[in-house]
């Protein structure tokens, strides 16, 4: 009698536990989800994730917590997410630096350690010159560079940054010899361009938009696949004769072993965030361009970018 009781209890317990495990996947998310990010609170990427988090909260019904793990050139955040429990409650917000960073310095982590969830935006990258510059089109730039090899100064970011690599790639494809001058960030490049000490630069559109409006800077081409909504007069680089496209990724990835059901929940909810009025206001003000790439296609986008960084970084790393 007693034994049977025990058996029933045992079966009950096991089935309860199973049901619990099942519902854990079914009822995902049952608790707040943490989004890890590699730069400090208040940085551009962090503010983006926090705003996106607010929009997602309304869709998945659980709070989103952005956790900043800075340091180690990003490796602190990436290692932490790589080793996190693959239960879908720890995800990683990424930019293109998760692809470029581990290439530049030896890290025990790479973009391939993660399962893609979705790319949601891209940062438009543009080629710009001082407003008083004689260059009106990208063709003028090429002609001048070919006529005076090595004389043209181009402002870039850190050696391993996407901007620097884009400059090198563009110069290579357009067959021009130029001098690349690295700067700490977009703001410094902007100052030098306005002062006319450097001839041209590649940078994020959002960083220079206000100075374009003020009439201090002229954009001569963008590196996107198509023209930008905010600046319809600016041709793409492809239209200017150089077949090169670069779009900085903003997206979400997960630890490798996260179940596909969880990824699907996120991919589906991320697809719905663009209409959220507050979030829309945010991303329009910050010049982010929606570019939804679901999980299955995102891997290729990342692989392509990785190949580009690897090719351009040869000898640099």
């Amino acid at each position: 009698m007693k034994k049977r009781h025990l058996l029933v209890l045992l079966v009950l317990a096991v089935s309860l536990a199973c049901a619990g495990a099942l519902s854990a996947a079914e009822n995902y998310p049952a608790k707040p989800v943490v989004l890890v990010y590699h730069s400090q609170a208040g940085s551009g990427g962090d503010i983006f994730l926090r705003n996106m988090g607010k929009a997602i909260e309304k869709i998945i019904g659980q709070p989103i917590i952005v956790e900043n793990r800075t340091g180690g050139g990003g490796s602190n955040a990436w290692m932490y997410s790589k080793n996190a429990k693959p239960d879908g409650y720890t995800l990683l917000g990424i930019s293109s630096s998760v692809i470029a960073g581990p290439l530049q310095t030896k890290m025990a982590v790479s973009y391939a350690d993660f399962k893609p969830v979705a790319q949601v935006f891209f940062d438009p990258t543009v080629i710009f010159v001082p407003a008083k510059s004689p260059f009106k089109t990208f063709d003028d730039v090429i002609k001048d560079a070919r006529a005076n090899p090595g004389k043209q100064n181009w402002g870039a970011g850190n050696p391993g940054s996407a901007e620097t690599m884009c400059i090198e790639k563009v110069a290579q494809m357009a067959d021009m010899k130029i001098t690349v001058v690295p700067f700490e960030g977009g703001a410094d490049v902007m100052v030098e361009i306005i002062a006319g000490r450097i001839d041209a630069a590649i940078g994020e559109y959002a960083e220079i938009a206000s100075q374009v409006e003020a009439g201090n800077i002229r954009i001569i081409a963008c590196l996107n696949t198509e023209r930008m909504e905010e600046a319809p007069d600016v041709p793409t680089l492809k239209e200017s004769g150089v077949d090169f496209v670069f779009e900085k990724i903003r997206g979400i990835v997960a630890p490798k072993d996260v179940p596909d059901s969880v990824v699907k929940v996120w991919t589906d909810s991320l697809a719905k965030i663009y209409d959220d009025p507050e979030f829309k206001k945010y991303y329009r003000e910050n010049m982010l361009v929606p570019r939804f790439v679901p999980a299955e296609k995102m891997q290729k986008v990342m692989d392509d970018q990785h190949a580009f960084f690897k090719e351009m970084g040869k000898g640099l790393y």
């Binding site: 340091g71 180690g72 050139g73 490796s75 530049q104 310095t105 030896k106 890290m107 025990a108 850190n158 050696p159 391993g160 690295p182 700490e184 970084g313 640099l316 790393y317």
Partner: peptide
């Protein structure tokens, strides 16, 4: 990290010293 070349100077292979 060197600001002009992509190498880590005086890092002695430690990930703590990358930045």
């Amino acid at each position: 990290l060197d600001p002009f070349a992509g190498i880590v100077r005086f890092g002695f292979g430690s990930e703590h010293l990358i930045e």
